[in-house]
Design a protein around this nucleic acid. Structure first.
Lengths: 210, 210
DNA sequence: TCTCCTACCGCATACTTATGCTATTGTACA
DNA sequence: TGTACAATAGCATAAGTATGCGGTAGGAGA
């Protein structure tokens, strides 16, 4: 018997989910709640195998709920449920420790399959969400960033700027005159095609130059 | 008819795959190759919808193959096939532009499902691989909602600073006075515990505030 | 040898930024 | 019905920055 715990603020959906899961062979609903304020203790008491967690709840959001659960319990499988496959939430939920991410419009048969999948250690996601995850993944800048032909010395200066140093502080740090710092920075600006310190810093970070 | 192109250096597997796909309703194998040296031109000529790409090939690896394909073609769906669900390869393949990542031990029925899924824009992955992807994802240096209690307006200003705007440009962009911009920036500095524009930009980018 | 590049240094000037203080509005919450 | 805070705006001044010009010295390579 796979024990399932349900969090959803919408009564109708909560009941639909409960009905679906409890009438499926091999599954048992051990509780349903309209908020996840007490999730960590609920789980300690009810000992579910899988938690279905709505992401859009008033008060404590599902993501907060997952974080709170994971402080106490790393084992229970958590499946996020959401109406929107919006970028930020997916990322946040995964980082919080969710095991899968499903759209509410997922059809019942598929949902049950996904429950089996997560129970067996998988990470079920709807196709659209999986695609998003891959895209986010692919957008992670690779370690080999273009370095714009900056000389070693220039990179040093740039690093110090990124760390929040003023010209004066850079000069002190590198033990060169402030005018030399100016020279270096001028050259850096030329190479990066920028004309302010903050633009240079932004470009350095975005392109992982430093 | 969904057109499939197969790359695998092992003749037996190539033939098994070809048999499986070509005997399935709605699918057609337009070619099989034992290496992906000529992949970009193969694809230009054969116009497949889906490419099945073995990852472990002598000479040009499947990952190199994907990179080469993506230079010319962003539309064809590429499914990676591998015996090992090893961390580095998954990451590299995704970064190269693969649409999905399957283990060779995937059973035939499931494989066909996955082919449909990728054709429809999904990102099929075996459960074990999806789990890995989530884990990698979760280990990405944390953006984790640290927004330093910036108000919406302050975030707007900060974004403009990150984009390289001066006070004057921010004022023009937001249609407020430069003194108001100063006010906002003062408050941003207080909240971020910095005291220069470039520090603020660096912090914004490092903490993914904007 | 001569040229190119890098690192170094200097001065001057206009512009931008940081930070002090103050003040009015509107909205939200207790 | 106050209290709190966000957003707006202003003024003044010191500090920092951007960019114009100029220069020297040393090493790599044509």
């Amino acid at each position: 018997m796979i024990k399932v715990l349900i969090y959803d603020d919408v009564q109708e959906l909560r009941e639909t989910l409960e009905l679906l899961v409890s009438t499926t062979e091999g599954f048992e609903v051990v509780g349903t709640f309209d908020n996840c304020e007490t999730a960590p203790t609920d789980i300690a008491v009810l000992q579910p195998d899988i938690v279905l967690m709505d992401i859009d709840m008033p008060g404590l959001t599902g993501i907060e709920g997952v974080k709170n659960i994971r402080v106490k319990n790393q084992d229970v499988k958590i499946l996020m449920l959401t109406v929107f496959d919006d970028n930020k939430n997916v990322f946040e939920a995964i980082k919080a420790g969710a095991n899968g991410y499903l759209l509410k419009k997922t059809n019942p048969t598929r949902l049950i399959e996904y429950l089996h999948e997560v129970y067996e250690g998988g990470a079920p996601m709807n196709a659209s969400i999986a695609t998003q995850v891959l895209k986010m993944f692919a957008s992670i800048p690779s370690p080999a960033g273009s370095n714009f032909n900056l000389s070693e010395r220039e990179k040093e200066v740039l690093q110090l700027l990124v760390d929040g140093n003023s010209y004066k502080m850079v000069a002190a740090e590198m033990d060169i005159s402030i005018d030399t710092v100016r020279s270096h920075i001028r050259n850096i600006y030329d190479k990066l095609h920028v004309n302010s310190k903050s633009e240079a810093v932004a470009k350095a970070l975005k392109h992982k130059i430093v």
